[in-house]
Design a protein around this nucleic acid. Structure first.
Ligand SMILES: [Mn+2]
Ligand SMILES: [Mn+2]
Ligand SMILES: [Mn+2]
Ligand SMILES: [Mn+2]
Lengths: 148, 148
DNA sequence: ACATTAAGTTAGACACAGCTAACTTGTAAT
DNA sequence: ATTACAAGTTAGCTGTGTCTAACTTAATGT
């Protein structure tokens, strides 16, 4: 007999809904590194006038070759412009992305702090959370952070 | 002259602090798949009495070989036990991890809903956010979700 | 019993993101 | 002008996570 476990009594709907959620997370992770890099590059340029690979490496916590390879990919994707042995620049697309990431990052951090978290933990958690916050959620975060 | 931009006027401290944050995010991502799998396996066992690779694949939104390879890794890490052509089981370690992930997942979802998000978006965002929530933050989430 | 079919496995490809080691380039000081 | 050193690059390794194609096994129904 081995009782019939179709595991589908409720139709494939809930299974599909879940799959979509995980796919969305994987999609977010595919964009994550690009977002963090352009955000950091924008900050370095604002602060020092230039973004050097060595400074990116120190702040990302990775080695120089890792930064080089990542920057090559970002250049391929049209987010940064670079020339051998020079600092990195953002393309218009890259600058736009950086702007929106910076804004989102700030909102998430402020939200967490407003919720009662210490600033350092807020920064740490925000660095991961920011990439998984939908527009709707971000708006709720913004709202909660401001009005309170 | 090419003015001296050491990019280190504030010492390497802030750079290091940032690096630690990104390293923490990478660490979270290393554990993420394992967490999602054991959580899902526990749910399938609770609901159907067994967790079959095909059901994992449907719900994770990936193909069967992907599930197989991932389960091999989880077995290597001592989180699941498996035999060829059979359903998957959780080891005691795996069951413990699943329990804590399930709890955390629930808290994050309820928090987002309490904040005003619709349930489906809450589920979607929670699937990513859950892996980046520190104990401290989780406690704040729990608190906010309950008392309100 | 046997055939059909669903589930599972294996092999092999690809891209990404990290690393070390070894090399090249640019520049700042002498 | 030379040199020394910091920064950048290149090559090549590893492990993960995804896929398709082709195969094997187990279960179902007749
Ligand atoms: Mn981030
Ligand atoms: Mn950020
Ligand atoms: Mn998840
Ligand atoms: Mn993440």
């Amino acid at each position: 007999m081995t009782e019939i476990r179709t595991n589908d009594e409720n139709g494939p709907r809930p299974a599909e809904a879940r799959a979509e959620r995980f796919q969305a997370v994987r999609e977010a992770h595919r964009n994550e590194l690009a977002e963090d890099y352009v955000e950091l590059i924008a900050e370095l340029i604002a602060q020092f006038g230039e973004a050097r690979p060595v400074d990116l490496a120190a702040r990302m916590g990775v080695t120089a070759p890792t930064v080089a390879k990542t920057l090559d990919r970002l250049a391929r994707e049209g987010l940064v412009a670079r020339a051998p042995y020079r600092s990195v620049f953002l393309t218009p697309d890259g600058a736009r992305l950086a702007e929106s990431c910076l804004r989102r990052h700030e909102i998430v951090v402020r939200f967490l702090i407003r919720l009662g978290l210490d600033p350092e933990t807020a920064e740490k958690d925000a660095e991961g959370i920011e990439h998984h916050v939908s527009d709707r959620t971000l708006e709720l975060f913004r709202s909660f952070a401001e009005c309170s």
